[in-house]
């Protein structure tokens, strides 16, 4: 087998395992940070400082009884959480964790694949993730689950459009869809008179960055856009009827997609592995951690949006803004290229 292919596979396995471990501890991180923001303590009994809490949660969920409702569509009921959980980390295949390192004389690329439509691949996998939600809501044989699933799906596909459109500005400026290319372009410096700034796209596309953040929060069904699965509204939305480890698939799929979108946002807008002192994967980790903290911060601070306000925000406010952003970016680019 080709050495490149083999190293890609091995790197993919490594990334997957790291992501799965991180996702479990993301739940712990969230509970601790939420607690700190609410003047509480958070889990601190299970293990030192509560570090073994995610493991206890996971084991407990594995040992719960597995209930399948009688009138549920059995095959789809079993399929839906798997779809959510499997498609979530697949999107991490295009995120560049660095350039390449030398392992035993072979050049190993620190990304699983460098596709020339990498950002579109990411959006495509994100748009496939909505199936877990719809099918989960449908298969539960519970009309409130169905409604919750449909609401959730409508929200996700609306904000997917906004997510994709907000990235077009970045693509116009960088001229490429490949994430490796985008990261390497951001490591150049921008000379604005006396200032020497890195060419991060957050500086050239601030509006798109804000819109992307809002759309990312809505895309992963997180607060304040989590009405479809809010406890006081629809009990659990599409995952009401799931118990035990199937529920844990849905639960964890949400956290994985949070982590992946944070990595993606860090790659596209904040330069990825670019850093002032030495380029490396730790800068990417720090930037992604900032985004994850922002997610949790948003959850504890802002009240929930009502569903019609949510959809109104997407279609009436964000969509025009993002189209204006594309227009402006296009003009500025043409002006810069002298083609106006």
């Amino acid at each position: 087998m080709d050495a490149n292919l083999l190293s890609s596979y091995i790197f993919a396995v490594v990334v997957l395992n790291v992501l799965l471990g991180l996702m479990a501890y993301m739940t712990y991180f969230e509970r601790k940070v939420m607690a700190a923001m609410q003047d509480r303590v958070g889990p601190n009994r299970t293990g030192p400082v509560g570090l073994l809490q995610p493991i206890a949660d996971g084991i407990k969920l594995l040992t719960k009884e597995d209930i399948i409702p009688k009138h549920a569509d059995r095959r789809i009921f079993l399929l839906a959480p798997l779809l959510s959980f499997v498609l979530a980390p697949v999107a991490a295949a295009v995120i560049p964790f660095g350039d390449s390192i030398n392992v035993f004389g072979h050049e190993v690329n620190l990304y699983v694949a460098d596709i020339n439509v990498a950002a579109l691949y990411f959006l495509a996998i994100g748009s496939m993730g909505v199936y877990g939600i719809i099918l989960g809501g449908y298969a539960s044989a519970n009309r409130y689950s169905l409604l919750g699933g449909l609401r959730s799906a409508a929200q996700v596909i609306s904000y997917e459009i906004i997510l994709g459109l907000s990235l077009i500005g970045v693509f116009i400026l960088s001229g490429s869809l490949s994430l490796v290319e985008i990261v390497s372009q951001q490591s150049e410096t921008l000379n604005l008179g006396p200032l020497q700034l890195p060419n991060w796209f957050i500086l050239s596309q601030p509006l798109a960055f804000v819109i992307f953040l809002i759309a990312a929060v809505a895309e992963t069904n997180r607060a304040p856009f989590d009405l479809p699965e809010a406890e006081t509204e629809l009990i659990g939305g599409f995952h009401t009827e799931y118990s035990g480890f199937r529920f844990s698939f849905f639960f964890l799929a949400e956290y994985i997609s949070m982590i992946i979108i944070s990595l993606f946002a860090a790659t596209i807008f904040l330069g990825g592995t670019d850093g002032p002192i030495r380029d490396g994967v730790w800068w990417l980790a720090i930037k992604a951690a900032i985004f994850l903290f922002f997610y949790i911060w948003l959850r504890t601070t802002v009240p929930r949006f009502r569903y019609d306000q949510l959809m109104g925000l997407a279609w009436k406010v964000l969509l025009p803004l993002v189209l204006i952003n594309i227009l402006l970016t296009g003009f500025i680019r043409l002006w810069g290229l002298g083609m106006l």
Binding site: I115, N116, V117, L120, Y121, L123, A124, I125, S127, M128, V130, Y131, I134, Y138, L146, L150, A153, A154, I157, E160, G164
Partner: peptide
């Protein structure tokens, strides 16, 4: 034709079929 593949998934599976599923469920 990677672009076409990505667009196929985004548009067909991600949007058109989701709409079809919506209608079928309701």
């Amino acid at each position: 034709a990677e672009f076409l593949a990505a667009v196929q998934i985004i548009v067909y599976t991600g949007a058109v079929l989701v709409l079809i599923l919506f209608v079928l469920m309701l």
